[in-house]
Computed example of a mutant assay.
Amino acid sequence: MRWLAVFALGYAGLCGTLTGLSTALVPACLRVTEPADVAIVLGAALKGDLPTGETLARIDAAIDLHDRGLVSRLHATGSRPDGSIPSAGGLMRAYAILNGVPEGAVTAENASRSTLENALFSRPALPPGETRIVVTNGYHGLRSMLSFAWAGRPASACASQPIARSLTERLRDPLRETAAWAYNLPRAALWSLAWLGGVEQRLGARFLQ
């Protein structure tokens, strides 16, 4: 039990460190100057049929990258928690088109419910050989980068503008991200092992959610 407790504390410390590094190292999208072929926009919470909060901040940051000529197209990814339509990906795509991005320069993925699924389900829309940048929150950037690398579509990352949040929310988000690291590292490893053995379907449709 003692060694189990030591391992658990060490693992929690590692995951917390990764969250802290992401917050410190992922640059703001407004500071990005290196061009990429595509900006991948990760959906967050939705209210009604409009992108709001973090989702709105992320798609606005991606549109700004496009307007500055730093990306030639956008790819929006994410579903609703209940799987209904319109999805986060679809709403962000429609919003980008309304704000001047050509319709042919925006794709959407509508089924993913987690960062791992964002990366895996977006593979068909992200051809090999492209350069990519993921648009998300700062604390989430590093895990997003590793998720897309895990899915075979490596990308850099940048952070959208922070939105107004309560103190409780600002404290909660890094804790949730630390927990997400702890949960997703073993899931990604297990799925990869299952994929190598050709049995990933046996893990079930919800395994990566």
Rank of each mutant, 00 (worst) to 15 (best):
F7I: 14
D82W: 05
L14G: 00
T52M: 13
A164I: 13
M1K: 08
L14E: 01
E177H: 06
G83D: 02
P86N: 02
A57W: 10
G69L: 03
A159V: 08
A180V: 05
K47P: 00
S84P: 01
L98V: 10
L9G: 15
G90R: 15
A62R: 12
T52C: 08
G69E: 01
G90V: 12
S79V: 06
A182K: 06
P174T: 09
S87V: 14
R123H: 00
R58S: 07
A119F: 09
A88P: 06
G204P: 04
A76I: 00
R172H: 10
I40Y: 01
G90D: 15
W191K: 04
I163P: 04
W3E: 12
A88I: 11
G83Q: 02
D49L: 02
L25C: 08
H66N: 07
G138M: 00
S22V: 05
D64N: 12
R132S: 10
S192K: 14
L46D: 04
L21R: 08
I85S: 13
G197W: 10
P35Q: 05
L91W: 08
N137D: 15
L142N: 03
E177S: 01
G69R: 03
D37R: 06
L46F: 04
F7A: 15
W195N: 11
I133F: 05
K47R: 14
G48I: 07
Y139I: 13
V41P: 09
T52P: 02
L4I: 14
G104I: 02
A151S: 11
R187V: 04
E200Q: 15
E200W: 09
Q161L: 14
L4S: 14
T19W: 04
E34G: 08
A159F: 06
A12E: 10
M1V: 10
A179S: 09
A96E: 10
P81K: 05
D173R: 12
E169Y: 13
L42K: 06
A180Q: 07
P154C: 08
F207Q: 02
I63C: 09
G53Q: 07
